[in-house]
Design a binder for these strands. Structure first.
Lengths: 114, 114
DNA sequence: CGCGGCACTTCACTTGGTAAAGTGGTTCCG
DNA sequence: CGGAACCACTTTACCAAGTGAAGTGCCGCG
């Protein structure tokens, strides 16, 4: 590719700048969630992309996949500590958006998680 | 696209997640710079992409273009206040990279290929 | 037994970034 | 004075990543 693989900013950017990544992290911060739940919250994401993203994030150790073997078998996803370490960026982005972009400051999404 | 245009995180993500954006912002934080200088610092960027990115960032009010009409006419780019408001994110990303990715903490740029 | 949900995958298409080359202006050098 | 080189890009052709729509295999439900 071209950007320095030694550079922490570049490396982080490659992870978090993939489309939807930050949004799934934010969604998962609200609590563990299943594929179809994420699909519903992230309106517009294609299942293919969600699947890819989840897999990448799992590989990176940012989310944890848990196969509950109930019947029918459910799959749940949750943030790891590493994943939670991304939250400050999301917070910064929210601040930036609220201050500099004309966003509804409170249209964060549904749910101010208790 | 699909992501909520009201959501400050989504809006900000759309801007900063375009490839190279954060890197040009970081570069510009070092001081105003010219096209070819940026081209050299951001090893691997194509002039087309740099041109596009600079234009977008200018439109967003994140960088300022200054045509000095010396001869030959030089063009300089610099961060605006809005642009500087992105720096905390970059800082967060550096922290994340240093803590969670195996990056040389100080190899910010040129690899010390001794 | 057919319908619907879940967790995906496959396919065809569009969009965004890339590499390589080109453009039109300038100054530098012999 | 001619040619090489620099600057700030643009143009072209190409490729990879994301999209929308549909499909798959598995299950449980009425």
């Amino acid at each position: 590719m071209a950007v320095d693989p030694e550079c922490p900013v570049c490396r982080t950017a490659e992870i978090v700048c993939a489309k939807w990544t930050l949004l799934v992290v934010r969604e998962l911060d609200e609590g563990r969630s299943r594929f179809c739940e994420l699909e519903r919250s992230l309106t517009g994401i294609s299942p293919r992309t969600l699947s890819l993203r989840l897999r990448e994030l799992e590989q990176e150790g940012i989310v944890e996949r848990q196969q509950l073997d109930e019947l029918p078998p459910r799959t749940e996803y949750a943030l790891t500590d590493k994943g939670r370490a991304l939250l400050p960026m999301i917070e910064d982005m929210r601040c930036f958006g609220e201050r500099w972009l004309d966003c509804e400051a409170d249209a964060v999404f549904s749910s101010p998680s208790a």
